[in-house]
Amino acid sequence: MNDRALRELYARWLDVATRAGFAISLCAFLVYAGGLLPAYVPLEELPRYWSLPVHRFIEVTGAPQGWAWLGELAYGDGLNLAAIALLGLVTPACYARLLPALIATRDWLQAALALLQLVVLVAAASGLLAGPG
């Protein structure tokens, strides 16, 4: 696969995933800020807490850490964390699409780099090494 085709493939996936991420973030935020779903930490009370360090914020509000936000998707703030997490998955998705294309063209070195990058990103996303502090 030549460089131009490689760039175009990555750009196409990046474009679609980023536009989807933008649209989902916008919708999730309108639901949250518009009060269509209740917030885990009510918006009117948030200014009392947002100047606290994160560990104190979590102690006071009981806000989720780690993957616990997955259980709070019925709340506006939990839904928005899911939208942010989707943005964190855009790059792994693009690399996952690149990998078979590189293997198919026997570009082994680039394929190995893409695979290693995927391992790093999946390890970071798993939270196993960076869970709640």
Binding site: F29, Y32, A33, L43, L46, W50, V54, F57, I58, A63, P64, Q65, G66, W67, W69, G76, D77, N80, L81, I84, A85, G88, G127, A130, G131, P132, G133
Partner: peptide, 9 residues
């Protein structure tokens, strides 16, 4: 995200 340091607002 895992440390709770992303405030959606």
């Amino acid at each position: 995200l895992h440390r709770g340091a992303l405030l959606p607002l």
